Computed example of a mutant assay.
Amino acid sequence: MNEQTVTRDERAGEEAADPNRLLPDEDPSSHDPDDARHWLEVYDELLDFKRKMLTIAEEALDGMRDKPARREVVDTDRRVLRAECDRFEKRLAFWRNRLAAARDGKGP
């Protein structure tokens, strides 16, 4: 693995853990109900995927007793997956509120 790959991998890990990171083209200033519905679908799909990955990680931990590999999964993989789930839940709530506001005529 070269230095550029390590740096890119480190950056990806840091970005994944950033609770305020938005997805490309996501515009939180948008009050368009279609935008809100789109991002609800996107984040719902991402959250479903990450929850499945977290379930797989949890199940795999059962077979990893007292090993350095288990500690690595607990300290990194599971922690990152949970952080991503939290971030996606937060973004879902944001877009649900934005859609509700648009429906109630409370947009800008």
Score class of each variant (00 low, 15 high):
Asn2Ala: 05
Thr5Gly: 01
Val6Tyr: 11
Asp9Trp: 10
Asp9Gly: 04
Arg11Cys: 10
Arg11Thr: 14
Glu14Thr: 05
Glu14Ala: 11
Glu15Ser: 10
Glu15Gln: 15
Ala17Pro: 01
Ala17Tyr: 00
Pro19Asn: 03
Leu23Val: 05
Asp25Gln: 13
Glu26Ala: 12
Pro28Val: 15
Pro28Lys: 09
Ser29Met: 09
Ser29His: 13
Ser29Glu: 14
Ser30Gln: 12
His31Phe: 14
Asp35Tyr: 04
Trp39Thr: 05
Trp39Asn: 08
Leu40Ser: 06
Glu41His: 06
Glu41Ser: 13
Glu41Cys: 02
Val42Pro: 04
Asp44Ile: 02
Glu45His: 13
Glu45Val: 05
Glu45Met: 05
Leu47Val: 03
Asp48Cys: 07
Arg51Asp: 02
Met53Ala: 15
Leu54Asp: 11
Leu54Met: 08
Thr55Trp: 03
Ile56Met: 10
Ala57Leu: 07
Glu58Val: 14
Glu58Gly: 02
Glu58Asn: 13
Glu59Lys: 12
Glu59Ser: 12
Ala69Met: 09
Ala69Phe: 07
Arg70Trp: 00
Arg70His: 13
Arg71Pro: 00
Glu72Thr: 03
Val74Phe: 02
Thr76Gly: 03
Arg78Pro: 00
Arg79Lys: 08
Arg79Met: 06
Val80His: 04
Leu81Val: 01
Arg82Asn: 07
Arg82Gly: 04
Arg87Ala: 08
Arg87Met: 03
Lys90Phe: 04
Ala93Arg: 15
Ala93Met: 06
Ala93Ile: 03
Ala93Leu: 12
Phe94Gly: 03
Phe94Leu: 10
Phe94Cys: 04
Trp95Gln: 11
Trp95Glu: 07
Arg96Glu: 15
Leu99Thr: 04
Ala100Pro: 00
Ala101His: 06
Ala102Thr: 01
Ala102Tyr: 02
